[in-house]
Amino acid sequence: MYSDRILNDAVYENIPSYGLVGRPTRSYRTIVHGRVSDWDSYLKNALNKLCGLPNGWDGYASPPVKFENAECALHLLSGIKKITDNSGVELRKVIPDAPYFVPVAGGALQAEWHLDGYFVELFFDGTSPVTASFYTDDDNIYEEFFLDCSGAQIDASLLIQWFIRIYDLKNAEQEAA
């Protein structure tokens, strides 16, 4: 897969004081190389930045985002981008741009889309399947499911269905206004 090729191109630069979980004998900063598009560039820059956060970034002694979580996010989101690129115009309209990334204490990672009062979040913590959630500010909608990203193939169809629903809901709101 394309995302696998990106990850295989990852190089590790020995820089003291930056952590990378899973390589306990040395300290590294991760730099991911690969073919560049705006989306790819954004993902890599954002994820590399979060993997390079200083220890204690949250004020509660948290380590930076673990490489395995960043890798999983890159794998999943590159897959979604690939779906978008291979889709017709109709589907391209409903799939939003790349999400925001937020570190979570302990090395976990959250990707989140803010879509005019609708929110879609992906929670990567490395020890369990990715948790996907869809909700509104007023909590009238709250849905959740788990995504298994352990294999080469990821079934993101439920996630895509959420984006289609949000697109339809926003259109209905505009028509009603």
Partner: peptide, 9 residues
């Protein structure tokens, strides 16, 4: 972000 209210690892 709601990430500020999530579990640590």
């Amino acid at each position: 972000s709601s990430a500020a209210f999530k579990s640590s690892s």
